[in-house]
């Protein structure tokens, strides 16, 4: 499913993206001295991307409304990641209430060629932009989520782990004055 969509979209070599992202993160670290601020800024940028990216996703993937949050998780992991980054993620640790899951990223184009210096390990979440993208995209489909990086391969941990928690389902509100 994800592969079909990925075959359909126009593609470019990932190196430009990877290197540009690296240059931007470097710039952010220079601009903000506090690493925590860098994480926040990356997340914000991701949010701005996510709210636009969902349009493209819905237009190209032909995916309808998900039955529950767990289906959403699978769609993000198998179609969303595949369509834009060409990789798939794995969903684990779904909780029984169906309000929380973890995404495991084994492969991530963003971190190709990257090595974090010792002082940034466990502080900088290099791919934090992904959290923002997920949050922004889901907010546009009435799901308010909290998305955090739990583990990062660049900080010598086994895999990259993003935790997504559903906070509330926003109601379909009709804009004021719209009949």
């Amino acid at each position: 499913m994800g592969t079909d969509v990925f075959n359909k979209v126009e593609k470019i070599n990932s190196e430009l993206f990877t290197l540009t992202y690296g240059a931007l993160v470097t710039q952010l670290i220079k601009d903000y001295e506090d690493i925590e601020q860098v994480n926040i800024k990356l997340e914000q940028m991701g949010y701005n991307i996510g709210i636009r990216l969902i349009e493209e996703f819905l237009a190209k993937s032909n995916i309808g409304r998900c039955a529950d949050f767990m289906e959403t998780a699978e769609v993000i992991a198998k179609v969303g990641f595949k369509m834009f980054l060409g990789v798939t993620a794995t969903v684990i640790d779904q909780d029984p209430d169906k309000r929380e899951f973890h995404l495991i990223l084994d492969d991530n184009p963003l971190i190709d060629f990257v090595e974090l210096p010792e002082q940034y390990k466990h502080k900088l979440y290099y791919s934090n932009i992904l959290c923002g993208v997920i949050r922004g995209a889901l907010e546009m489909v009435q799901m308010k989520v909290k998305c955090t990086f739990m583990k990062c391969t660049l900080s010598d941990e086994t895999s990259s782990d993003i935790k997504v928690v559903l906070e509330e389902v926003l109601s379909d509100m009709i804009p004021v004055g719209y009949d």
């Binding site: 990925f6 126009e10 990216l53 369509m83 980054l85």
Partner: peptide
């Protein structure tokens, strides 16, 4: 070498320039 979606880079590029 591997590929990513063009739109993925473009969304990011717009955001980067904006920042």
């Amino acid at each position: 070498s591997r590929s990513i979606a063009i739109s993925c880079f473009e969304f990011f590029y717009i955001e980067m320039v904006d920042y």
